[in-house]
Design a protein around this nucleic acid. Structure first.
Length: 223
DNA sequence: GCGACAG
DNA sequence: ATCTTGTCGC
């Protein structure tokens, strides 16, 4: 199995394949990706949902489960979560035109967050939607829906910090693959309804964290 | 050597 | 991420 040192070498090599140019046609179906765990982390659950665009109507959902084989190491998240995500992608009846992935895109120490890694491996346009910061510096973000400020790593712009709705913690948006810095936050805004997270990510999260619901139901019915 | 650190 | 009830705030 790949160890952390080897994983970092793979990232340095693969990051050269990332494209930060808009390169996709008319969007008809978009996917949302998120991962959860069972058995105290022993089992990885990857959820991939497909929504019609721009209606955001759910049209397909796939859940893949497999033994976890890599620990959580900041900066190496994709090596822990992508195996299960790729299992789920193989079962899709049709590939989406764009993917929203929970986690960073190129806003990563070596430019290959999980959304960028997924984009390079599948070849699909991908956008990283992080709920918190991994790397980079930025100015304060106005407390208004749609407000944003660029995220930098040294001189390079690696993404943006976006307030998806007033009064919530901002999202860390960065291109994953075949999407530009300007377009990524625009598409995220178009995928929002009334919640902090864009709909594709919310739908994937509901499916990936289903165990929590099962446990809640068990507790209510009789422990 | 001392923090920071996606999910 | 996950373990977990009620509770503070808009």
């Amino acid at each position: 199995m790949v160890d952390p040192a080897e994983a970092r070498r793979i990232q340095v090599r693969l990051c050269t394949a990332v494209s930060l140019m808009d390169d996709f046609g008319v969007l008809r179906q978009v996917a949302g990706v998120d991962v959860g765990f069972e058995e105290g982390g022993a089992i990885t659950r990857a959820a991939v949902v497909v929504l019609q665009w721009p209606s955001l109507v759910l049209v397909e959902q796939i859940l893949a489960r497999r033994p976890t084989q890599f620990p959580y190491v900041p900066g190496l998240l994709s090596f822990r979560e992508l195996p299960a995500v790729l299992d789920a992608f193989e079962r899709l009846s049709r590939y989406p035109d764009l993917v929203f992935c929970d986690g960073q895109g190129v806003a990563h120490p070596r430019g290959l967050g999980i959304a960028a890694h997924l984009g390079v491996l599948t070849g699909l346009p991908c956008i990283g939607v992080g709920k918190s910061r991994l790397v980079g510096t930025h100015a304060e973000v106005a407390n208004e829906r749609g407000a944003s400020t660029p995220l930098y790593l040294g001189d390079a712009r690696i993404g943006c910090v976006l307030r998806s709705r007033k009064g919530v913690r901002p999202l860390f948006i960065s291109p994953g693959h075949r999407v530009s810095q300007e377009t990524a936050p625009r598409l995220v805004m178009q995928a929002l309804t009334r919640f902090r997270l864009p709909e594709p990510i919310r739908a994937a999260h509901r499916l990936a964290s289903a165990p929590a619901i099962a446990r809640a139901a068990a507790r209510m019915s009789g422990r």
